[in-house]
Design a binder for these strands. Structure first.
Length: 315
DNA sequence: AAGCCGGGGTG
DNA sequence: CACCCAGGCTT
């Protein structure tokens, strides 16, 4: 079904949502973290870089990486011209290195299709590699100060508790949830951007997933979940934590860590030493090559035997 | 809608 | 040691 993004919050002085928004924004003004991508000298491109890095990676790990990254490649043209191997090394251990690939592709698209200027239009943003509904909305709000429905894991959790009265949002995002979030976003551009930033910050610092600090919450008196006695998560039985040990993701991570450190192509034997299951490693290497994260150099005489090939990061 | 894709800090 | 983190892409 389609969701009308023009749905507005009900006006009026007795609107409880408006009261919550006002208090959350006031709290944000006093408690917002001093993050570099919020600094006055930030650029729209810098905001986009931060949003991509923050996809599933915590703020504390992103901050130093973002500073180094922006110092090295300040704008999309700089990143577009960089060797991909350097980009993947700079990504370091932020995780999900395909994001680094997408970010460079994004930079090249911005240069080629938008003259090196990040577009404000939501459709144009969504068309960029690695930019999905969240990131497009976040860039519109935080880089350009435009109204958008920013719905990340923090906002989902805040609305689940304050508005819906449940411990945590459902495992998968619903259309009703998007509609609710849209209804909570103020009409005006500046107010909308401020609310989104404030709601995310509240979710990150106070209304946390693990141990919420309701005693420090600016809207504790209006929270449906707290009023209900903080009932347990209804969806707990459906949540499945992703396995790690022995998975392809761990194997891929081993390979990428090895190749990031290598200054010259790595012989297959050295790659094989990082993983005991040879068949699994072979699959992962094929997948990494297909993803564009790894390049396989066949031995002279065009021998396709993977056992005598060498591996490296793409130039 | 569900599965896949890193890595590390934390309760 | 399970859980969580400013998600996106593919099927």
């Amino acid at each position: 079904m389609t969701v009308d993004p023009t749905v507005r919050a009900a006006p009026g002085p007795d609107d409880p949502a408006a009261a919550v928004r006002a208090d959350v924004v006031t709290w944000f003004d006093a408690h917002a973290r001093d993050l570099p991508w919020r600094a006055p000298d930030r650029t729209p491109w810098g905001v986009l870089v931060s949003e991509v890095m923050l996809q599933q990676t915590p703020v504390v790990r992103v901050e130093p990486a973002w500073r180094a990254w922006m110092a090295r490649w300040p704008g999309p043209a700089d990143l577009a011209a960089a060797p991909t191997a350097d980009v993947l090394r700079a990504w370091d251990r932020l995780g999900y290195p395909r994001r680094a690939l997408w970010l460079q592709e994004c930079a090249r698209t911005v240069v080629e299709r938008h003259g090196g200027v990040l577009p404000e239009d939501e459709e144009a943003l969504l068309a960029l590699p690695g930019v999905g509904p969240y990131t497009a909305a976040a860039v519109r709000a935080f880089a350009f100060g435009r109204r958008s429905v920013v719905l990340d894991t923090n906002v989902r959790r805040v609305l689940a508790r304050v508005a819906a009265g449940v411990a945590l949002p459902a495992p998968t995002q619903s259309a009703a949830e998007t509609r609710l979030a849209a209804a909570w976003v103020p009409d005006d551009d500046a107010g909308a951007a401020r609310w989104s930033a404030a709601a995310m910050e509240l979710g990150a610092l106070v209304c946390t997933a693990r141990a919420p600090r309701c005693d420090a919450c600016p809207v504790a008196e209006r929270c449906r979940w707290l009023a209900a006695g903080r009932p347990a998560d209804v969806h707990a039985h459906r949540r499945r934590t992703q396995a790690w040990a022995g998975t392809d993701r761990q194997a891929r991570g081993r390979v990428m860590a090895l190749l990031r450190e290598a200054l010259t192509p790595v012989p297959h034997d050295a790659v094989a030493a990082t993983w005991s299951d040879a068949a699994q490693l072979a699959r992962c290497l094929d997948a990494l090559v297909a993803d564009g994260l790894v390049v396989r150099h066949d031995a002279p005489g065009d021998d396709p035997d993977p056992a005598v090939a060498t591996y490296g990061l793409p130039r």
